[in-house]
Structures are given as structure tokens and as C-alpha cells.
Design a protein around this nucleic acid. Structure first.
Lengths: 126, 126
DNA sequence: TGTATACTTGCGTCATGATGCAAATATACC
DNA sequence: GGTATATTTGCATCATGACGCAAGTATACA
């Protein structure tokens, strides 16, 4: 069931005290993982490739050292952007397409909910 | 009309050379704006408040100096997350709900498109 | 014109993180 | 066991960015 909020806070201070889904959806760790140009490039590369790729393969597509790529991929996996699977001496990384898309859509939905001149529940809160 | 791509690149190196919408949708500047906990908190606060708020008002909701809040809000506006409107000696910032939600959904859609075991065009590229 | 309020900007400090290299670890294959 | 390949980790360096304070700018109002 959908929770009904009584009213929207009238000041930012009240709003800050009011805990809502958007607080956790605006997770800085996810954005931190994607905010570096090199990492964003790696994600785009893996997404376009569409299959799990090894660290060495991925390293061929960018100009930084393999050790840097390794660290970036591990970082992205830790943040939930990529999935890691070890096979023999290689580690394959793949984009977690569905989970990532789902997270982004949840955030978009919550933004709509907060938007006052949108259908949804806009205008009410807390 | 929807462009039809012939095939998906088989290596990350080929994928990197293949320009696709996800390259620009994974814009590091947007994520850079949201990756700082203080900034994320400000966005959440403004979203929950739902109306344009002045710098001073917003500053009351967090522990950092007003000058820091001012810089953060300007940063978020520059990245397209917030809208700024000057009224007299006050500056009002508001979340660009629709644009932000749209951007996130576009990225989610493009991820679906790239996902091989999803409906969409998964499996084809370039 | 003078003063108060709202915000921005300059600057120094400090913390975090990106990078490359070299060394360490893990696994495959002889 | 010994060697080659794949990846990770330690370490030093360098760049970026967050922060607070103080000074500067803009606007309102007496």
C-alpha cells in the first residue's frame, strides 16, 4: 500500500528532518562510482560490449595502466554497478544492467513524486 | 526513426571505438554534482521541500558554512540539477525535477538497450 | 547616502582520490 | 617444481575538491 503523507514541509530545515525515499536513492556512493571520466568510460565500454570482459581486455580500450583499470573495476563492482566473476586467473566484469536501470528509474519516480506540479502525490509529504 | 545497428562489438576495444548514446548519457559532470554527500543532501532537501528556496534558507538545514552552501548550489545549477532564479538580493534554487527524471530514464532506457538478455535491441550494435 | 542583509569570491588548509611503477599473489601449463 | 600470464596491492606523487574565514559585491530600505 502507498503511504499517504499529510503535508509537505514548508522550509528546507523541516524538509531535511523529514526522511523520505529520495534520501537513500540519492546515494552518493553510486554517483561517486560514476563521476570519474575514466570509470564512466569503462562502464560505457562494458555496456556497449554487452558481455563479461576480463580486466586485461578492458585495459586495452583505455590509456591508463592495467593496475588502474583493475582498481576502477573493483570500485564499480563495490558500488553495485558491475558484477565480478573470477574464472581461473582472469576476472570478468559485466554491467549489472537491470539493477542499475531499476535504481535510476526509482530515483526518477521519486523525483516525480516530489515534483509539485506533476501528477503523483506532488504537494504532500511527511 | 530508429537506427538499426548491424552487430555488437566483440571486444571492449571495438566497443570503445563505437560511439553510442550511452557515452554521452554517462556524463561524469552530472554524477560529479551528485557524488558529494553534502550536495546530495541539499538536493534531497530541496526536492522534499518542493519549492524554490533561498541560499540562506537552505543553509539552515545543514551544518556547513553559508559560503559552502552557495558554492554547492551554484555547482548543482551548473550541472543542470537545479534551477537558479535571482529575486532582489536573494537567489532561489529549485530542483529541475522533470529534466533530471528524464535524464535518468534515458540512461535507464539505454542500459536496457545495451542489455543482451533484455527485449529491446540487445545483442546488436554499431 | 548610509547601513543592514544576502550572497559570492579569494585564499589557505586539509583530505581524498587518480595514477604509474614495482612487487606480490593467484592460477595455468610445462 | 618452475615459468608465464592475469590481476591485485603497496607506495609515492600529484591534482582536485571541500571547507571556513574574511573580504567583496549586490540589493533593499531608512
Amino acid at each position: 500500500m502507498t503511504q499517504v503523507y499529510k503535508r509537505r514541509p514548508t522550509t528546507p530545515k523541516q524538509a531535511a528532518a523529514c526522511c523520505r525515499p529520495i534520501d537513500s536513492l540519492l546515494n552518493p556512493d553510486l554517483f561517486k562510482a560514476l563521476c570519474d571520466p575514466t570509470r564512466a568510460g569503462l562502464v560505457a565500454c562494458l555496456a556497449k560490449c554487452g558481455r563479461p570482459c576480463s580486466v586485461g581486455e578492458v585495459a586495452e580500450c583505455c590509456s591508463v595502466d592495467v593496475s588502474v583499470v583493475s582498481r576502477h573495476l573493483a570500485h564499480l563492482a563495490r558500488a553495485g554497478v558491475l558484477d565480478a566473476k573470477k574464472e581461473g586467473r582472469e576476472v570478468y566484469y559485466a554491467v549489472r544492467f537491470k539493477e542499475l536501470a531499476q535504481t535510476l528509474r526509482s530515483l526518477a519516480d521519486e523525483l516525480d513524486t516530489c515534483c509539485p506540479d506533476q501528477g503523483g502525490r506532488g504537494g504532500s509529504c511527511c
